[in-house]
Design a protein around this nucleic acid. Structure first.
Lengths: 348, 348
DNA sequence: ATGAAAGCGCTAACAC
DNA sequence: GTGTTAGCGCTTTCAT
């Protein structure tokens, strides 16, 4: 959301300062500063007069200048991969839950799952002098993430990266559960649709492959040019429109599952009669009547909460031991999955 | 997302400064500063050496300190009412479209449509010394908004407020179109579900009332305790579960429409056979197969873009004339609305 | 074209 | 308890 170059100069201003308050109240700046932070060493009387005159003058504490003077950084930078995917709104809400009452600001950098801009976005956060970066989800290689972590502590959400704080769900377990469930329903031609490859997020794909191979089946992996509904829809129109199409699809996330769903419908395939479908994220939409999508819940809001807490902790103790929080995802079965029937498996 | 009180002190740091660069390059700080902003009055040679040593040292421009020194404010504060409602993610993306390449940061304050916290959230933005506040959507009374605008210029999105920059869609036109469409389909018992009252956002409701009264019909307005799907669902279970239930519902927004939809289904009512439904926002979900919700599009991303542009303009020219951008909303007809049949209108 | 000095609004030592 | 003195990292006159 920001970059170096030519910035609009910004609004000139003249605001009420601690000096103004000090003069009006007949005390020194320092005392005003102390009073305002509830620091000890200020008499009840002074404190009261100071706070009162401050209110009268419309003074507001300048956290920016305070950070500069104290050589601290109290703002948290939050990087979100994509706002079209509800899961990131959930992460945001989780972070907010955790940070809300702490008095720390959050500044945002949002990227795009079809054309990620991690480097640049995180750069902007660093430029804005954030104390910690919470990143959900980084597509950079692990080495690059560690490099970034040299400039500022990073809390990686939904992806494990060696060497930085991590909060994530067990993707392998989630993907394995989804794939196994489809196998149990009798499906044999099960495809997996995913997006651009990047280190550390091949876990779902690998787990799917492992389960398939283990069952003596041939994995069918379709790699789309991104992770959005649109991209998935275009891609799915291709691989669903063939004679030996899969009878079930496990999608990398709900967004992509929705794309597959739209494509299926436009091809006259009905879910789950002709095609079983599983998504990932258990988004609110997946729960709607008429959508009813079987999905894996990675409890994104919870991840956000933990990440927020981790960020605050990292702020206080620069050298605390690295965090590695792994949650267990849950498969939520709904109506988009059904037994494989002759109708769906018209080849056998 | 932030408040005054007891903030976590923040991370101590020690970063590379312009001083470091100046020393290493054998010039003065001032020159480094100039060089870095591409200001005139620096020889090509100096500029090159400075930029090069900066890169070597890993120097990053400190926009925070720069703003302080220059007495400017280059950060934009963005207030969003609720993240569960996709429309606000769209506004965000619009703002980003507009601000992206300008080099200005955006800091966020997100509230909750069921328990709004406008005052506090905007306060936090002011505390963070933003140059402009873009607010979507404020629930404060107009007077209060104008009061806030004393501290910092406000761009109101999706709501018209006299005395500040505004970017919004014509709610009366949108609501009238929706209501009229239901009338045209033969519906007579048309309910409108909306949330907590607040000044300036009664427009949809008023337009609905006007159209109904004009057609000689009795308006049925249901006021829920918020604007979310959950709240709407609970409320709808009540007013749909009666003998002379409405045959059509016009909801304040898509979120509420989804709530009504869930309630209807849980009561065994089918859409549109037993109940016609219209939402507001034309969200991505409304377009999904199986949802297919008739809705009014207020082009939220576009609103965000205009608001972002307005904010940047306001930063440069404090005293530019006030903006008042009104867009035309569009009714998008889908499958959730149908002619009123004896089946749905079992009373006539 | 370059440097010196002052100051943005605040905090942090240390003195009184 | 309260005031004084230095800065934080940067921009901005104003000299040179």
């Amino acid at each position: 959301m920001a970059c170096v170059q030519e910035s609009i100069p910004g609004r000139k201003h003249r605001s009420v300062t601690q000096d103004d308050v000090a003069q009006k109240a007949g005390v020194s700046r320092a005392l005003v500063s102390l009073a305002f932070r509830g620091a000890p060493g200020v008499s009840e009387e002074s404190r009261r007069t100071i706070l009162e005159t401050a209110r009268l003058l419309g003074y507001r504490h300048n956290v920016i200048a305070a950070d500069l003077a104290a050589k601290t950084r109290s703002t948290i930078g939050l990087y979100l991969l994509d706002f079209r995917n509800e899961v990131y709104a959930d992460v945001f809400r989780g972070v907010r839950d955790a940070v809300e009452r702490s008095g720390n600001r959050v500044i945002l950098a949002v990227s795009d799952a079809d054309e990620p801009t991690d480097q640049q976005s995180i750069g902007a956060l660093i430029e804005a002098r954030v104390g910690v970066v919470i990143a959900a989800t980084l597509m950079l290689p692990d080495v690059e993430v560690r490099a970034l972590a040299q400039s500022v502590p990073v809390v990686s959400v939904a992806r494990k990266v060696q060497g930085v704080d991590c909060v994530y769900a067990d993707d392998e377990a989630g993907a394995a559960a989804a794939t196994s469930y489809l196998l149990d329903l009798g499906h044999r031609r099960i495809a997996h649709i995913t997006g651009i490859e990047y280190e550390g997020h091949l876990l779902r794909r690998h787990a799917y492959e492992a389960v398939m191979v283990n069952a003596g089946l041939r994995p069918q992996i379709v790699v789309a040019h991104g992770y959005s509904q649109d991209v998935a829809e275009r891609t799915a129109r291709g691989f669903l429109n063939v004679a030996d199409r899969p009878t079930a699809v496990f999608a990398h996330n709900d967004e992509m599952a929705f794309g597959v769903r739209e494509a299926a419908h436009s091809l006259g395939l009905r879910i789950p009669r002709d095609l079983s479908l599983i998504g990932y994220d258990n988004s609110r939409v997946s729960r709607l009547h008429g959508i009813d999508l079987t999905s894996v819940d990675q409890h994104a809001r919870r991840l956000g909460q933990d990440a927020g807490a981790a960020a605050l902790a990292r702020m206080r103790l620069e050298n605390a031991p690295l965090l590695d929080v792994r949650h267990k995802p849950d498969l939520v079965v709904r109506g988009s999955t059904a037994r494989c029937t002759p109708r769906s498996r018209d080849d056998t």
